[in-house]
């Protein structure tokens, strides 16, 4: 019934295989997160105890509220930790397969590089490199298409934010050369 014009088909050749081996189980991540939260709670409780957790004449001191919140956080994480350790819930559950991990890294690492580049080159130049690079390397889209899209996007963003809406973004040497 559906003619070719009324159908939209998008392929995903690098999709993660469903039988890819597990990298880490949900239980392990659960335990690690609980431990991290416990450490954070301890750190914050200590800092608030230093600030003062007593009851001053005009009500609680600055550290009072966060100190007890820290205790609740610690208790809840401890509960999570113990249930994960004792019951072994989620041990068979996969948190991430190897293919999925690779795909997530394919976005995460470029994003990290983009943030680093923004510091040196300014946001617009960094976004050009991010979009062009991502489309070309990960999306395997033709180089000219990638470059053109990235250039247009960067220019549209610049005009929208820096010129039309007066929202100033971090800039680098290239913008300086144009006098911005």
């Amino acid at each position: 019934m559906a003619t070719p014009e009324t159908e939209i088909v998008v392929e995903d050749p690098t999709a993660p295989a469903s039988d890819s081996p597990s990298v880490v189980s949900t239980r392990t991540v659960d335990i690690v997160v609980s431990l991290l939260l416990l450490a954070l709670a301890a750190l914050l409780c200590f800092d608030n105890w230093r600030t003062g957790i007593a009851w001053a004449p005009d009500g609680p001191q600055a550290g009072y509220f966060p100190f007890y919140l820290g205790l609740i956080l610690a208790a809840a994480s401890l509960y999570g930790l113990i249930t994960a350790l004792v019951t072994g819930a989620g041990a068979a559950q996969t948190f991430l397969t190897r293919d999925q991990f690779l795909r997530v890294m394919q976005v995460f690492i470029p994003t990290l590089l983009f943030c680093l580049l923004t510091q040196w080159l300014g946001l617009y130049v960094a976004s050009f490199f991010l979009i062009a690079g991502f489309m070309r390397i990960i999306g395997r889209i033709a180089l000219w298409k990638s470059m053109l899209t990235a250039l247009l996007f960067a220019i549209i963003m610049f005009v929208t934010f820096d010129i039309a809406f007066d929202v100033i973004m971090p800039k680098g040497p290239l913008e300086a050369a144009f006098g911005y």
Binding site: V10, V107, P110, T111, F114, C115, T118, L123, S127, L130, I131, F134, M135, I138, G139, R140, I141, T149, F153, M157, F161, V167, M169
Partner: peptide, 15 residues
């Protein structure tokens, strides 16, 4: 393609 949209969303988030 998502490979064009994903980086644009990242940039928009950063902005």
């Amino acid at each position: 393609p998502f490979s064009a949209i994903a980086p644009m969303i990242v940039v928009s988030c950063a902005i």
